[in-house]
Nucleic acid binder design. Structure first.
Length: 561
RNA sequence: CCGCCUGUAGCUCAGCAGGAUAGAGCAACCGCCUCCUAAGCGGUAGGUCGCAGGUUCGAAUCCUGCCAGGCGGACCA
């Protein structure tokens, strides 16, 4: 509908250019917006305001000329010039109800579009080190990242989701030594306890499983504990597998799955890390200093050069990161989105700089990043900081177990990633109108209940037949609901484009609100068959939008509550 | 000291590709169930959009400078 108005305005402006009212070469980006106030019509444009200066006319006069030049269209009932020079469009009744037919016919595909045109995009998210259970911050990454994947798929992109395991390096060494210490019966605080060891209770569980010679299945392998406390290599393999398994369970409980699990260690085995070094050295981008090998990242916008290979011969985390992204590029992902916590934002410049230094034709701003800010958890008005198992942080599992998957996913995805998030456990737990998850789900359940009643009463409802009666939807609440419903496809498209799933969450809250208002003001199952058919159609269209929208957030849409 | 993010109603937050009187929920107060699930609805009250300049016909939205909070600034990740 928006694009129709844009086209009409474009024709009108072309006509005015042709007759000399507007200077030649006038080709503005025409803005058409949905109005906030129904008295301003359904859609409005500010073109007259933006073009008035160039035309040497008063905005309202120009608006009048534009209106005269507008081609007639049956979807537009009338136009009005308002305020400083806005052109308001009032849609014909059958145009404003068109969205109901669209929703019912499209069904689960309502709201989808082909903006991505089948292009490939890779989304990397969570990517937690396999050194402990996932915490709330990872949960936010999982909720936002997974929802982003769903949004991109819904808008025509071919999405590949990926989890990158840092299963090599110093942190893994700490993990192995921590488990080894537990195997030997040591505890944090003991003299022999490793420096920077992991203190959580789950380390005890890993040690016990290892000593019992348990078998654990990670995504691509099966590892059996050797039972020998002195075999650090065996402990490392077992511990990593155990924690990968643990994280897989956390993600499964959260309803998140990945297309690809990528291991940092594979980059060493395949020689890709060494290849990256060779490319950088041969390209003359490096220098030796104090026994270390440095990369001139300052040539690419970084504020200081970075060490690639330490004096002890080991690589810094930065180098495998570069090799990993080169790997992504070579897999043909011209678009990559990395969703990560903002506490790692300093890597953005570094990775991009490293990729530029490779001179492999990678674009400067590649890859894209979505950074989410920190999460704090509140209960009884106080911040919750500790978990029994993990010790120093609140685990994702704790939250899912306590407030449920749907509420957890909704709350973690409902805020702009760039904003810090306060997760209020009391609110997420409340089974009342305080809780937006239930509020939205309840609207869905109410429509399902209407269908149930309809069937119980032995009343038939035929979709195509109902669509013929939609013009009966004329009262204020119905009109408001139609206006809200019409915004769904635009909301999805924009949320995907801006990588902001929270827009969907907020929209659904509003849509559900309009539905509840309508539902409370008017009976759906009235005696008049035509009106009844039309209202059921409207309710069903809303249900479809809610079900689809919740699906984009990974939240369920129950039929009864 | 430098970089990124944030500052909107008592609280949690939308709005920020400039637009017509700044929104929602919670909390407060007043109402609505012989009626499709009251996990619902209606109403009242509540804001110098951190502060100060600037650009513009028009700024919560863009620019600059301050102030406050969060995060980062390793031969850790």
């Amino acid at each position: 509908m928006k694009s129709l108005i844009e086209r009409l305005l474009g024709d009108a402006l072309a006509a005015l250019v042709a007759d000399g009212t507007l200077p030649a070469g006038t080709a503005p980006a025409i803005q058409v917006e949905r109005t906030r106030d129904p008295s301003h019509g359904d859609l409005a444009s500010n073109v007259a305001l933006t073009l008035a200066r160039g035309a040497g006319m008063k905005p309202r006069d120009l608006a009048a000329r534009i209106c005269e030049a507008l081609p007639a269209d049956r979807a537009v009932e009338r136009t009005e010039i308002a305020g400083p020079g806005f052109i308001n469009f009032f849609l014909a009744a059958d145009a404003s109800t068109a969205v109901v037919a669209e929703a019912l016919r499209a069904g689960e595909r309502f709201g989808e579009c082909d903006e991505g045109a089948g292009r490939k995009v890779q989304v990397e998210f969570v990517s937690a080190n396999p050194t402990g259970p996932l915490h709330v911050g990872h949960g936010r990454g999982a909720a936002v990242g997974d929802s982003l994947c769903r949004l991109l798929r819904a808008t025509g992109w071919e999405v590949s989701s990926e989890f990158y395991y840092n299963d090599a390096g110093q942190q893994i060494e700490n993990l192995a030594r921590s488990v080894q210490a537990r195997c030997r019966g040591q505890a944090p605080g003991d003299a022999a306890w490793p420096e920077d060891g992991y203190r959580g209770d789950y380390i005890v569980e890993v040690a016990e499983a290892y000593l019992r010679c348990d078998s654990v299945a990670a995504e691509d392998r099966q590892v059996t504990g050797a039972g020998d406390p002195e075999d650090l290599e065996a402990i490392r393999d077992f511990a990593v597998a155990w924690l990968r398994h643990e994280q897989d369970l956390d993600l499964k409980a959260f309803g998140v799955d990945f297309d690809v699990y990528f291991l940092e260690s594979s980059l060493y085995r395949s020689g890709e890390v060494d290849d990256a070094v060779k490319l950088l050295v041969d390209g003359g981008k490096t220098y030796e200093q104090d026994g270390a090998l440095w990369l001139r990242t300052t040539d690419y916008g970084d504020d200081k050069d970075r060490v690639m290979r330490k004096a002890d011969g080991g690589y810094t985390y930065f180098l495998p990161d570069v090799a990993y992204h080169l790997n992504k590029w070579r897999r043909g992902f011209t678009r990559v989105i990395n969703e990560q916590g903002a506490d790692h934002h300093s890597t953005v410049t570094r990775v991009r700089a490293g990729l530029q230094a490779l001179e492999q034709g990678i674009p400067e701003g590649w890859p894209d990043y979505v950074l989410h800010q920190m999460v704090t958890v509140m209960r009884d008005g106080a911040e919750v900081k500790l978990s029994k198992r993990a010790g120093s942080y609140v685990t994702l599992r704790d939250l899912i177990d306590e407030v449920g998957r749907d509420a957890t996913r909704y709350f973690l995805a409902a805020r702009a990633p760039s904003s810090q998030l306060t997760f209020d456990i009391d609110l997420a737990l409340s089974q009342s109108n305080d809780n937006p998850v239930y509020y939205i789900q309840y609207a869905h359940a109410r429509v399902c209940s209407v269908h149930q009643r309809l069937a119980e009463a032995g009343l038939a409802w035929d979709r195509e037949a109902a669509l013929a009666h939609l013009t009966l939807l004329g009262n204020e609440e119905e009109q408001e609901l139609l206006r809200a419903l019409a915004r769904y496809p635009e909301t999805v498209a924009r949320a995907a484009r801006e990588a902001e799933p929270h827009a969907v969450a907020n929209y659904l809250r509003e849509l559900a609100g309009h539905f509840h208002t309508f539902y409370n003001a008017h009976k759906v199952l009235v005696d008049d068959p035509a009106l009844r058919a039309a209202r059921v159609a409207l309710a069903e269209a809303v249900r479809q939008a809610i079900a689809n929208g919740l699906g984009l957030l990974g939240v369920g849409a129950p039929e009864r509550m």
